[in-house]
Nucleic acid binder design. Structure first.
Lengths: 337, 337
DNA sequence: CTGAAAGCGCTAACAC
DNA sequence: GTGTTAGCGCTTTCAG
């Protein structure tokens, strides 16, 4: 147990009081230059490191921010964390990570467990109904929501513009000459999935008035996408393009069509959403909507950090994704508009 | 600022002393049943949540473990964290995550910053020379190393058996009938890369005695793999198989060969290491060595947690990876041995 | 500029 | 069983 060296030891060695040590170490101005040097030397010699719990108990600051996520699976969260970590480091903040493992009912526990450990938190709750969140966030906790649908609680929110992204994709497909565009939806209780579906419907009405929406169920994973692909193959009047609510499902479709001997995009076009790394490597490469997830995370933290000084922006800020046109939707016709 | 409710408020409402509140809330036995109920009710009514910093200052426990990583990029770290998080939750531990962004010199800072914040830490330092680590870990800090080469400091280590994995791959290639097996190495200062190279050399001597090692430089990324692929294409006496030290480089090779019109595996076989998700989706699907990263992380945490009670195992425990044979190394001949 | 001292909110002896 | 009290290691008035 070598970690017994406290501020007192430093004070003794430097022949000053603990108060002076504290001031010197925290870079305050009212310390005589010579004394400061003595303190710093003593601290270095003893390898003194301030004890965090003590410091945060008395200063009421933790210099750490909490990150409450639904899960830790996959590339989305790793990218999100990376973006957050970059900004955290910039502001010398630590990151306390917690996942509630897809169980919304554990979200409250996770949030409460952060009391006294963090100065603020970033919370993500991708469920359509996040109202339970409001209670656990009720008190003066600083928080910013990520991709979470919860308004009227005075919290800032950063989210991906799913509606706009889906709209851009439908527009692209229409421009490429596709006329019967099917949509493979995501989980019903997922807010992102819901917005993408709405974007599809709205854009269809806008760019292909008269075209009927063709919506298939899906669950954001490859196998449900594959199933949707087979369902499409079995349709009497087959669509000429499929837009899946995320890339994994689009890949599932792609494989279903491959197996059936269809050529993509000649026989049928396929598009996804997210731009996962795989998207550019499959054959044909997948047209999709790219989201800068790291930016989403970084911006969320910046919002949180800024909110502690000024008033927190209470609005929903949307991150605009962009279309990445690849081979899987290369158009039959070339009507430019 | 609703978080002003302290243990005192609960004590007052429940008409007991703070000590009793503490005991009741911490589930100690010496509390009268009726009193316990009163305390619990009061706590619930006031929405009391213990203040972490205060608790850990006085109890000298933080119930959190630190995770110090070289980076947060990509699937390896996300899987590692997922495995760790699973075990952490099991033991009701929080996770403080910190990355030193590939700068070994910042590792010490990261480690020191954890003082008083964690009960122990999981540290990963993939550099061949991790000796600087020893100093910053010198005191009685509980720690377990992950994929880190540092012996003699009395710390447990969990690592992937890179040597064994590379050996298994060479054996597989030899069994498939390949005779001139080239190796695309990883960064020189990376410990995993170094061990994989050794495994290749040793296995070559073992399974194909007389065959000369053919080693190309690489940097663990796709472009260096691609460059190595082109270098191989330019060789007078071309190898019939390429084993890259990781999957991304193997993919780079694959694309180089595709571009050159070579057929894999008929003209040349390609193999990687890691089994990233992409590996099964490329064409031809990539033979590789699969590592259960989540298990690596989970086991590391278990080791850390166990070490606090019993004596920490000071040895290096190796996680055995396994061969995943796919299309990219389908053999020309069928000599079984 | 510096020191003494009062807490921060909680746990853990130690009494009763 | 329960209350009193002394810290945990640090920051922060408040004097000087």
């Amino acid at each position: 147990m070598g970690d017994v060296v406290t501020i007192r030891d430093v004070a003794r060695l430097a022949q000053v009081s603990v108060a002076t040590v504290s001031r010197a170490l925290n870079g305050q101005q009212n310390v005589a230059p010579g004394v400061r040097v003595r303190v710093l030397d003593a601290a270095r010699e003893l390898k003194y490191v301030p004890h965090h719990a003590a410091r945060s108990l008395s200063s009421r600051k933790t210099r750490t921010i909490g990150l409450v996520l639904p899960d830790l699976h996959g590339e989305f969260f790793s990218e999100l964390m990376r973006g957050i970590d970059l900004v955290a480091r910039e502001h010398d903040q630590h990151l306390l990570v917690s996942s509630y493992h897809g169980h919304p009912e554990e979200l409250g526990v996770a949030l409460r467990a952060m009391r006294g450990r963090v100065d603020g938190m970033l919370v993500m709750s991708p469920f359509v109904d996040s109202s339970a969140l409001a209670q656990d966030l009720g008190d003066g906790q600083h928080a910013v929501l990520i991709n979470t649908h919860l308004t009227g609680v005075g919290l800032g929110t950063l989210a991906i513009d799913n509606h706009g992204g889906a709209r851009a994709m439908v527009q692209h497909l229409a421009k490429q000459g596709f006329r019967r565009i099917a949509f493979v939806a995501g989980p019903q209780d997922n807010f992102d999935a819901d917005q993408r579906l709405r974007g599809y419907r709205d854009a269809l009405a806008e760019f292909l008035p008269g075209a009927e929406p063709i919506v298939l169920e899906g669950a954001f994973d490859e196998s449900s996408g594959n199933a949707a692909g087979h369902a499409i193959l079995a349709m009497a009047e087959r669509p000429d393009a499929v837009f899946a609510a995320n890339d994994m499902m689009a890949l599932g479709c792609l494989f279903a069509f491959h197996q059936a001997g269809l050529r993509v995009p000649d026989d049928i076009a396929v598009a996804g959403f997210d731009d996962i790394p795989l998207a550019r490597y499959v054959h044909p490469s997948l047209t999709t909507i790219a989201v800068d997830i790291a930016e989403l995370g970084g911006l969320a933290l910046r919002t949180l950090l800024a909110g502690r000084e000024a008033d927190m922006p209470r609005d929903v800020r949307l991150i605009a994704p962009h279309l990445v046109a690849r081979a899987s939707t290369r158009g039959a016709r070339r009507d430019s508009s």
